Amino acid sequence: MNQPEQAPEAPVQAAGCVLWRRSPVDGALELCLVHRPKYDDWSWPKGKLKRGEDHLAGALREVAEETGYDAAPGAELSTVCYMAGDRAKEVRYWAAEATEGVFVPNDEVDRILWLSPTAARHRLTQPRDRALLDELLVRVFERT
């Protein structure tokens, strides 16, 4: 007897930001990368949404939780879809300017780095995160 097909699970919904600031030293553009010891990777601050949470609110919450910084959201960037284990994950991103805050290491993120776009490109673990960096530079800072 045939088993009825199960509908595929909906993708995990997540949100994050490509967090930036102007260097306090020389005013140059700096991007914030987070290091997650669980995955030993460098990426943008992001995370799963809470039940019923708006994507932008979730993105700003994740930035605050992972980096200690408040952020002023700007342009919405691309949504990134990928497999996380055996389940699809869909992450909506925004460009966001860091306003104020102080990083304190926590269980999820043990380090952050503020890097130039070139240094961030080399440090990011996933190619999909590099594409978001390019999008930020073109759409927000009008650089190619």
Results as ranks from 00 to 15, higher is better:
D54I: 00
D54C: 03
D54M: 00
D54A: 00
H55M: 07
H55I: 03
H55V: 09
H55G: 04
H55Y: 14
L56V: 05
L56P: 07
L56K: 12
L56E: 08
L56A: 08
L56D: 05
L56T: 07
A57Q: 15
A57G: 12
A57V: 14
A57C: 10
G58N: 00
G58I: 01
G58E: 01
G58W: 01
G58R: 00
G58D: 01
G58L: 02
A59W: 01
A59C: 06
A59I: 03
A59K: 00
A59S: 08
A59P: 01
L60G: 05
L60Q: 07
L60N: 07
R61D: 02
R61E: 03
R61L: 09
R61S: 02
E62N: 15
E62K: 13
E62Y: 03
V63L: 12
V63N: 06
V63W: 06
V63F: 08
V63I: 07
A64T: 05
E65P: 07
E65D: 06
E65V: 12
E66V: 02
E66R: 13
E66K: 15
T67A: 08
T67Q: 10
T67R: 07
G68R: 10
G68C: 12
G68V: 11
G68F: 06
Y69L: 04
Y69M: 07
Y69T: 01
Y69G: 01
D70R: 12
D70P: 00
A71G: 07
A71T: 03
A72P: 01
A72T: 05
A72K: 14
P73R: 13
P73V: 13
P73W: 10
P73S: 12
P73C: 11
G74H: 03
A75L: 13
A75G: 09
A75V: 09
A75R: 12
A75E: 13
A75P: 03
E76P: 10
E76T: 10
E76D: 01
E76A: 14
E76Q: 15
L77V: 11
L77D: 02
S78K: 11
S78N: 13
T79P: 01
T79F: 05
V80F: 04
V80A: 06
C81I: 07
C81P: 00
C81W: 08
C81G: 02
C81H: 11
Y82M: 06
Y82T: 03
Y82H: 09
Y82A: 11
Y82C: 03
Y82K: 08
M83P: 03
M83H: 10
M83L: 15
M83A: 13
M83R: 09
M83G: 06
A84E: 14
A84G: 08
G85F: 00
G85W: 00
G85P: 03
G85R: 02
D86R: 15
D86A: 14
D86L: 14
R87F: 07
R87G: 05
R87L: 14
R87Q: 15
A88H: 09
A88N: 08
A88R: 13
A88I: 03
A88T: 10
A88K: 12
K89D: 05
K89N: 14
K89A: 13
E90I: 06
E90F: 02
E90T: 12
E90V: 06
V91W: 00
V91E: 01
V91M: 00
V91K: 01
V91D: 00
R92G: 04
R92T: 15
R92L: 05
R92S: 11
R92Y: 06
R92D: 05
R92K: 15
Y93Q: 04
Y93S: 09
Y93V: 02
Y93K: 03
